[in-house]
Design a protein around this nucleic acid. Structure first.
Length: 758
DNA sequence: TGAGCGTAGTTTTTT
DNA sequence: ACTACGCTCA
């Protein structure tokens, strides 16, 4: 595998051999606005690329155009993406367009590019060039230790909460000293800022950086060292950014600093597809572009090449309910096609059955399974689909879930390599010090820990110092010394062995593989397989350092393609993909839009959920099907649910109720009786949600009564039970929501359908 | 050190 | 309903 960042100095880059005068055949076939986006090479450009409007084509053609015109050498171009997949695709497609692989240009993810810059100037921010990059798991483990040292109650504030707060600060490029007084006092009772300070100094001590640091420290570097910044500004004559709507403040600052001089920055994005605010993305970055870069050219790509008019119409009608959009009008030349099907079912089991049966019918008609996808709001929803698919013997793949390097055995093995590469890597050392069991239990680790902390040194160093004192008992002292000697030996071995060979040696000599061989549990053989796979993967690397960089920043899920399979994944995972046939199950209030999005971020949350629905619909080329169930199991309990408000927002002219409704009527009959009983009492204060449901003319027969509360009598003072918040009493009625004072959780606004009378 | 038990949490995910 | 965790006790 190539290191994507193998870089030659720009002066060594060969000039493109193609003369600029050559007729630009690669521009043929672009529509007018696409061409405009490609040809506007100078100055700031914002390309608002609606779903399916040929964004990737524009990006790659623009890059090729800059190179072919001789405006820049490859090394003078910076192309930034969010995912490795996107970076790889860009690399491949530009190479393909030019007929030769492009080498020496800076294409990659924000994090990989920032890491690369940071390694060159590590000393300027207090790191060494071989610093370790910590992942989420490492972060949390480190925070746990800090909380323990500070005696903070992890019951009240779990480590993850601190991790999240710190990450959000880093997303905004706020180091501990830059967090405002007000925020510092407020966050987690003022403890977060102290933990943040400890966390940062501990990272420096361990010569490590987390994902957020890569951007934040790079911004710090640029701001504190104008000369360094200038050198990069001069180097990168053209800057290109994909998925701009997903950038956070740190990334925005990073880009702005780099593009400040020449202002040749082209950002491509779609505000309607911004679905990552929960991990720090700021839609504001895209909405503000013209202010940040005065004189910016804005190009709208509105011609859609993917979906039929009905699908496009449904999606556009839906997204029109959002406010504060930059606004685009998607259109297409394609034939009308089918309307978006909307289908109500009794419960989630029936939903899975109905959808999978529909897929099977298509397969019988000769449609390939690979053209079909089920896009869910939450990953738990895939389970019932899997069960049904297994029953019918239909091949499927679930995208998402645990990744290769997130598995325990892989992380352990990598931890050995990390300690070899960097003796100060305490997190890695702790992970494997007693794995396999060496008799180094908590007690002796504690002693080492205390000494290390007191002296402000790494665990390895602490052990070395302790070998001359009596603080450790003689047995653990010897065991620790043996372990350190092993590592010293492996470090020597590392000189004349490839990383793969070294891994082999270490796994063998440490007894790690042996440990799993002796393990009787069912997943042990699989783990040994994974370790073998790791060694194979390692053989592509020449140096330990390049491998470690790869595993923390570039490594991804291997998805065995080839066989014809249906795809199951979350809506988030589907961004950027397309399928002929798309199924969108679970369009119910509380699930989609998700209750937590509504509770935690209100209107903004709702709008983001709506964008998610928009993303889902626009994945479909030919056929989109929305379904919702009257009953669904949530946290193990059956709850009744109302169709999502998004169902109402789909323009009537573009949808059709699926013909098979009759199938589910049997199921409804029972419900209708309940419904009748309830509706008589509706006037007693069921609220607008109920009325909304009952007034819904076109879909009257798709409306369900929440069985839970159907015995009526929801009024102020009523005692209720909520699955998540426990017991409480109703304080007020507000539409389909209730204001409830919970005994433990305090005041909350919750959905009618989620409470039970007690 | 490890099994057994009780409690809390259960949206989305990249790097 | 299910899981993952942290704690207790043998």
């Amino acid at each position: 595998m190539n290191d994507p960042f193998e870089l030659t100095d720009p002066s060594e880059d060969p000039r493109p051999t193609t003369p600029a005068e050559r007729p630009a055949v690669y521009l043929d076939g672009l529509n007018e606005s696409q061409r405009e986006a490609v040809e506007a090479t100078e100055g700031p450009v914002l390309v608002l690329a609606g779903a399916g409007t040929g964004k990737t084509r524009v990006l790659t053609t623009r890059l090729a155009h800059i190179l072919l015109q001789g405006r820049a050498r490859p090394g003078e171009i910076l192309a930034v993406t969010f995912t490795n997949k996107a970076a790889r695709e860009m690399q491949e497609r530009v190479g393909h367009m030019l007929g030769t692989p492009v080498e020496g240009w800076w294409v990659g993810t924000f994090h990989a590019l920032a890491a690369r810059i940071l390694r060159r100037h590590a000393e300027a921010v207090g790191l060494k060039p071989n610093f370790t990059i910590l992942d989420t798991d490492d972060q949390v483990r480190l925070i746990k230790q800090i909380l323990a040292a500070r005696d903070i109650d992890t019951k009240r504030f779990p480590p993850r909460t601190f991790s999240a707060v710190i990450q959000r600060w880093k997303d905004r490029s706020l180091g501990p000293e830059k967090v405002s007084q007000g925020e510092a006092v407020e966050a987690l009772d003022g403890t977060a800022i102290d933990v943040y300070k400890d966390y940062q100094s501990e990272l420096l001590r361990q010569n490590a950086a987390d994902f957020g640091d890569l951007l934040m420290l790079c911004v710090d570097l640029f701001q504190s060292q104008p000369d360094i910044l200038k050198s990069y500004q001069r180097r990168f004559r053209y800057v290109l950014v994909d998925e701009y709507q997903d950038t956070n403040v740190a990334q925005y600052l990073w880009l702005r600093l780099l593009a400040q001089g020449h202002q040749n920055i082209c950002c491509v994005g779609d505000d309607d597809q911004s679905i990552y605010s929960w991990r720090g993305a700021e839609v504001g970055n895209i909405l503000r572009f013209e202010k940040d870069f005065p004189g910016a050219k804005v190009v709208r790509l509105e011609r859609n090449y993917r979906s039929t008019p009905h699908i496009l119409g449904a999606a556009s009608g839906l997204i029109a309910n959002n406010e504060g959009r930059l606004g685009k009008t998607l259109w297409t030349d394609l034939n009308e096609g089918e309307k978006v099907r909307v289908h109500g079912v009794w419960d989630s089991t029936e939903e899975a059955r109905w959808i999978v049966d529909d897929m099977e019918a298509r397969q019988m008609r000769g449609e390939s399974l690979a053209t079909m996808a089920v896009l869910v709001r939450t990953s738990a929803q895939t389970r019932e689909f899997e069960e049904r698919l297994i029953t019918l013997g239909i091949a499927y793949q679930v995208i998402g879930g645990l990744r290769f390097y997130e598995r325990q055995e892989i992380r352990d093995a990598v931890a050995y390599l990390r300690v070899i590469a960097q003796p100060d890597d305490d997190l890695a050392f702790q992970r494997i010090a007693n794995v396999p069991k060496r008799g180094l239990g908590d007690a002796s680790m504690q002693t080492v820990h205390m000494h290390a902390r007191a002296r402000g040194i790494s665990l390895s160093l602490a052990i070395r110092e302790l070998t001359t004192t009596d603080e450790l008992k003689s047995r653990p002292k010897k065991l620790f010394t043996d372990l350190l000697n092993e590592f010293d030996r492996w470090r020597v071995e590392a000189h004349d062995h490839s990383p793969a060979e070294l891994m082999d040696i270490v796994l063998d000599e440490s007894g790690y593989t042996e440990m799993w061989k002796l393990d009787k549990s069912i997943d042990a053989p699989g783990r040994i397989e994974n370790l073998k796979e790791l060694v194979v993967g390692l053989s592509a690397f020449d140096t330990l350092t390049s491998f470690l960089e790869h595993i923390s920043l570039v490594m991804e899920n291997e998805q065995n393609k080839g066989t014809d399979k249906v795809t199951l994944m979350t809506l988030h995972g589907a961004k950027g993909l397309e399928f002929d046939t798309v199924y969108l199950p679970g369009w119910e209030e509380g699930l989609f839009p998700h209750q937590r999005a509504l509770d935690e971020t209100g209107t903004n949350g709702l709008e983001e959920e709506r964008r998610l629905a928009y993303v889902g619909l626009t994945r479909a080329r030919k056929c989109a099907t929305v379904t919702f169930a009257a009953n669904r199991r949530i946290y193990g309990q059956w709850q009744s649910s109302l169709p999502s408000r998004f169902v109402d927002e789909l323009p009537a002219g573009h949808i059709e109720r699926a013909g098979e409704l009759g199938l589910s009527r049997g199921g409804f009959a029972e419900d209708q009786a309940v419904f009748g009983k309830v509706s008589g009492k509706a006037s007693e204060g069921y609220g607008a949600g109920w009325k909304r449901a009952q007034n819904r003319k076109p879909q009257d027969d798709l409306v369900f009564a929440p069985a839970r509360v159907s015995s009526g009598g929801l009024e102020v003072g009523q005692r209720i039970f909520h699955q998540k918040f426990g017991y409480g009493s109703i304080q007020g009625l507000d539409g389909d929501k209730l204001d409830i004072k919970f005994e433990k959780a305090g005041m909350k606004k919750v959905m009618v359908s989620f409470v039970e009378k007690v």
